[in-house]
Design a protein around this nucleic acid. Structure first.
Length: 593
RNA sequence: GCGCCCGUAGCUCAGUGGAUAGAGCAACCGCCUCCUAAGCGGUAGGUCGCAGGUUCGACUCCUGCUGGGCGCGCCA
């Protein structure tokens, strides 16, 4: 529709230019928007205001001339000049109503777009280290990333969702060693657990599994394990040094056994993560192993490419990338003095790998605490000779978890956190998913678990789901009233929908595609959440104001068509956000209030 | 100290240059003989942190100030 109006204005301007009324050096960009209020029609253009200066004319005079030059069209009822010089377009009823037919035909495909080119996109999100279960902090990245993938798919992208698994490096060694120490405790060794080890209960549970499988095969005495290890922090030492030496001992003593523990620990945790995400309605196309970048030659090739471009140099025994040359605040080490490649080197390799796979766009969803990585990733992209505009880094701000007024804290290392699993089992997947994305991802979020759980009108997700369930209920109960729904009769009777609430609802339905498009264009999800809320509200108002199950067959079918169209859009929108659209909502403990 | 993000109603937040700044919650007043009251209608609530600037027009863009969050490792 916007395109249609744009054409009208363009033609009018050309016409006026040809007649010599307007003297324009270049055609102006024509901006057409939905009006915010009904009194301003359906669409409005500010073109007359924008032309006021170059034409040296009054905006309202320009608007008048443009309107005079517009060609007739069946879609537009009337055109008005308003305010300082806006041109407001009022659509004909027929034009407004035709969206219902469209929705009933397309169903959940209403709003789908096709992209012919530049449609390959990868979205990487969560990518938490497999050193423990996901907690509620990861939940927001998961909910947002997954919803974003759904939205991007809807507007025509071929989306490739990836989880980058950090299965390589020091943290994983600390994990394996932590598990081993717990295992030794289970074997009866009395050891002092390191300050820097992973302390969660899940570590003990993995240790238990290892003991079941391997018995005492991996047992060594406390004296051997702690041989020549410098003191831990509580004993006045350095906790980092302490744990690193423990890791070294573990590898020496255990030999091949170390790898068994390492693999069992990682597999357990990764499986847990996968399960938690699936229970959260989050799915990936690929679990990308960091280790694989080491095992094939990707890292070496990436570094070689940087080297060839003259972007690497040696300093104090380490190998550096001159990131400052590309706008970063300091240069970054890619290989340490001890010959070990840094995590950043893997990042560069992974980045290159994404470009090599030919994605038109690579989206990274990071926690806000990683914002310092943006300049260095962009720098690496440029240094590798790729287009930095092809990577899009989105920051997801922290979610503060509340139970009513009480703020809950979390920390992985101490093992004291609310896991995603716990959250989902407590408030349910639907509410959790919705709460995480109902605010802009770059905004801090207060997540109130009590509110998410509450079966009340405070809870927006139930509010939306209830609208869907109400429609299903209307359909279900038609039979009891000896009534039927005939879509064709509804189509031909559509002009009977004249009530204010009906027209408002229809207008909102027609805005669904542009809402999704806007969300996709901005790489955001919350506009969809807001939209669904508004749509549900319009439906509830309508439901209260007018009866659908009525004897008048034509009007009834027209209204049923409207209800059904609303149901499709509600269900599709909820699906984009990873929430379900129940056919029924019942509450036992809500009966008497 | 440097960098990034944020400051909108009592609270939580929408509003990526346009018309009278909007929701929800909380508060107050109403509505079930009627398709689910997890609902609806109404009232009240604002110097858009402060000060300049750009513009026909600024909550929106720029600069400074102020308050809050986060980050600044040869850690991952």
């Amino acid at each position: 529709m916007i395109g249609h109006i744009q054409e009208l204005i363009e033609n009018a301007l050309e016409h006026l230019a040809a007649k010599g009324e307007f003297n324009l050096a270049e055609p102006p960009t024509i901006n057409i928007e939905r009006t915010r209020s009904k009194e301003h029609g359906d669409y409005a253009s500010n073109v007359a205001l924008a032309l006021a200066k170059p034409l040296k004319m009054k905006p309202r005079d320009i608007a008048e001339k443009i309107i005079g030059a517009l060609t007739e069209t069946s879609h537009v009822e009337k055109v008005e000049i308003a305010g300082p010089g806006f041109i407001n377009f009022y659509l004909t009823d027929a034009c407004r109503l035709q969206v219902l037919k469209r929705i009933l035909k397309l169903k959940h495909e209403f709003g789908n777009k096709k992209l012919d080119s530049d449609n390959q996109i990868t979205v990487e999100f969560v990518s938490a280290n497999p050193t423990g279960p996901l907690h509620v902090g990861h939940g927001r990245g998961a909910a947002f990333g997954s919803s974003l993938c759904n939205i991007l798919k809807k507007v025509g992208y071929e989306v490739h969702a990836e989880y980058y698994v950090n299965d390589h490096g020091r943290q994983m060694d600390i994990l394996a060693t932590s598990v081993w120490l717990r295992y030794l405790e289970l074997c009866g060794e009395s050891i002092t657990f390191p300050a820097n080890g992973y302390k969660g209960e899940y570590i003990v549970s993995i240790a238990r599994k290892i003991r079941q499988k391997f018995g005492d095969d991996l047992r060594f005495s406390k004296a051997e394990v702690f041989a020549q290890v410098s003191p831990d922090e509580p004993a006045g030492g350095d906790k980092e040094k302490h744990i690193d030496e423990l890791v070294m001992n573990a590898k020496d003593i255990l030999g091949k056994g170390y790898n068994k523990i390492f693999k069992t620990a990682m597999k357990n945790i990764l499986t847990g993560i996968k399960n938690d995400l699936e229970d959260f309605n989050v799915y990936y196309d690929q679990w990308f192993s960091e280790k694989s970048l080491h095992e094939d030659d990707t890292i070496d090739r990436a570094l070689a490419k940087l080297e060839a471009g003259g972007h690497l140099y040696k300093k104090e025994g380490a190998l550096w990338f001159n990131a400052t040359h590309f706008g970063d605040e300091k240069d970054r080490v890619v290989m340490r003095e001890n010959g070990i490649k840094t995590y950043f080197a893997s990042d560069v390799a992974y980045l290159m790998n994404k470009f090599e796979r030919g994605f038109d766009k690579s989206v990274y969803v990071f926690g806000a605490d990683h914002h310092g990585y943006i300049p260095r990733l962009k720098a690496a992209t440029k240094a590798l000779g790729f287009d930095a505009d092809k990577i899009e880094i989105l920051l997801v701000q922290f979610a503060h978890l509340f139970k009513g007024k009480e703020k809950l804290q979390m920390s992985t290392r101490s093992g004291e956190f609310v896991t995603l699993k716990e959250l989902v089992s407590e408030v349910g997947c639907d509410a959790a998913r919705f709460f995480y994305v109902m605010r802009s991802h770059d905004q801090h979020l207060d997540f109130d678990m009590d509110l998410a759980k509450s079966q009340s009108n405070d809870n927006p997700v139930y509010y939306i789901q209830y609208a869907h369930a109400r429609i299903c209920s209307i359909m279900r109960k038609l039979e009891e009233q000896n009534m039927t729904h005939n879509i064709e009769i509804g189509h031909v009777s559509v002009e009977l929908l004249v009530e204010e609430q009906e027209l408002d609802l229809i207008k909102a339905l027609s805005q669904y595609p542009e809402t999704v498009e806007k969300a996709a264009a901005n790489f955001s999800a919350h506009p969809v959440a807001n939209y669904l809320r508004e749509l549900a509200q319009l439906f509830h108002s309508y439901y209260n104001a007018h009866q659908v199950q009525i004897d008048n067959e034509n009007l009834r079918n027209a209204r049923l068509n409207l209800c059904l169209a609303t149901r499709y859009v509600l269900a599709d929108g909820l699906a984009l956000l990873g929430s379900s659209a129940p056919k029924e909502m019942r509450s036992e403990d809500k009966k008497t209030v």
